[in-house]
Design a protein around this nucleic acid. Structure first.
Lengths: 165, 165, 165, 165
DNA sequence: TTTT
DNA sequence: TTTT
């Protein structure tokens, strides 16, 4: 529909390491499981309570997928921006099922790592992390100069590297 | 979890009139069905394509529920802010099912009507609409004065009317 | 800083027609003036009050700039997503000034027209409007197929048209 | 204006300790200075570049102000949600100035602490942190039960404690 | 089931 | 300077 917005913003932690499938051309498709939670105080008992919500995230965005694959692990805290999508599927018993996911389409969405070094509980080495990446770019574009001079900016030059951060 | 965010922002149109259930105390619980869609041009055929996504929205917020009940109808365009929640239920065949909804909790979320008079295709009368409402208030609080004087502001007085807009 | 987010979301109306400057290469840079407002009821007098906030928006994103230039006019209602930027400048009296703007960088941000036909009060003709556009694309990419087959997707083919909607 | 949205979302770090003023009734008004930044690679030189943006945040929301006062310090990483406001003032030379701030009004906005123990560089003791707080509540409301029974929920009971987290 |  |  003309004039619609479908946006999900999550800040939460990975419940497990990212799951990576790979397309024929080598592009990763990454699935994340992210927990958000709320805490409150029960007014009757005074107890602290907590309710956790689990979210399935699917990253089709190539650059963000590579960032997720390389730097995220179980326990990592991330900022994620995607869109809601519900898909229908049939289980092995022939039952129709619906799954709603937060999807980062190709060239869309955002993923920002919020803990240093990707945080997390994994035993894997801690390479220098790449903490920010955005969907609508191949590599990274520099922030456009404000009040730009009317000098010709070659569009091509914005895309000559393919490193996501 | 400490430090998490769970937020959904939708701008879309109601696929049908709001469905209202009522709690024992008279508070409405309102269900909306909202469509968002994307359009693009198929590069092979040049055809214009469209994909619509349907969202289930549940409003527990009392004021926003009353606004939805009174002013929204099939076709209305709204801005909605809520949170993602997935609940498990068992159907009549004993099958476990999961449903993911966008929930506006009590005293939380936002709902803004984006078309004049609530828009829509319903045959019902067009009363004067109340187009903006926010979750964290009983009635409406005035915007706080900037750089306020250190004069005592009585909190109570912010809540002495219960009109949502 | 690694791990930061700078995002502004506005839904409001244009106070005047868009202002368009043009770069040496023909790319438009579009300035919008957008009003948002809040209404509330004064508890003392029972009067309805309103406070309007004006926002300066600058669109460096080429596609979104073209959409704004073609379809927006005074009075149009839009959804805008950009980032906050403050720039320093010196006025004619040599005074240092600061201006904060909502900026849609190249290949970034979103702009969605929320009224049919771009709405508005302008005397200009009402061409067929293009109501949705997104920053991170040259033309429009189709939504990625869910659960994609491992067939090689040629990235180039996503960009072979330059029509923003 | 009916049907408008004015929302800013920031994830960034405090450049200095919070500044607290106090109203006549003891409510805190807290000013924060928050940095966000972007990094990219210069395509000519291959250098890594960074551009930092500084944001002024003003918290009139009483609960969030108390959280900020108690748990934030220089270096803390926060998620902030507020609205854009520009105010005019006159400097000591009689010059008119404009300042744009991200404002968390009374009972509005969100503040979430993203680093454990409030993070930061301050020398002060590390009390148990309160990492999540939301504007539209006095104390904390429990998440509303889904599919609630039509049993009367006493509204009063949601507000009988005044602890922000 | 909406909207364009 | 918009909109309701």
């Amino acid at each position: 529909m003309a004039g619609s917005v479908n946006k999900v913003i999550l800040v939460g932690n990975l419940g497990r390491d990212p799951e990576v499938r790979r397309l024929g051309n080598g592009e990763p498709v990454v699935n994340l499981r992210i927990a958000t939670s709320e805490t409150w105080k029960d007014k009757g008992t005074g107890e602290r309570k907590e309710k956790t919500e689990w979210h399935s995230v699917v990253i089709f965005n190539e650059n963000l997928g590579r960032v997720a694959e390389q730097y995220l692990k179980k326990g990592s805290k991330v900022y994620i921006e995607g869109q809601l999508q519900t898909r229908k599927w049939t289980d092995q018993q022939g039952q129709e099922k619906y799954s709603t996911e937060v999807v980062l389409q190709r060239f869309r969405g955002e993923l920002t790592i919020l803990d240093s070094r990707g945080g997390g509980a994994s035993e894997f080495g801690d390479e220098e992390p790449g903490q920010v990446a955005r969907g609508g770019e191949f590599g990274r574009s520099p922030p456009m100069e404000r009040r730009p001079e009317p000098a010709g900016a070659s569009r091509h030059s914005d895309f000559d590297d393919d490193i996501p951060f």
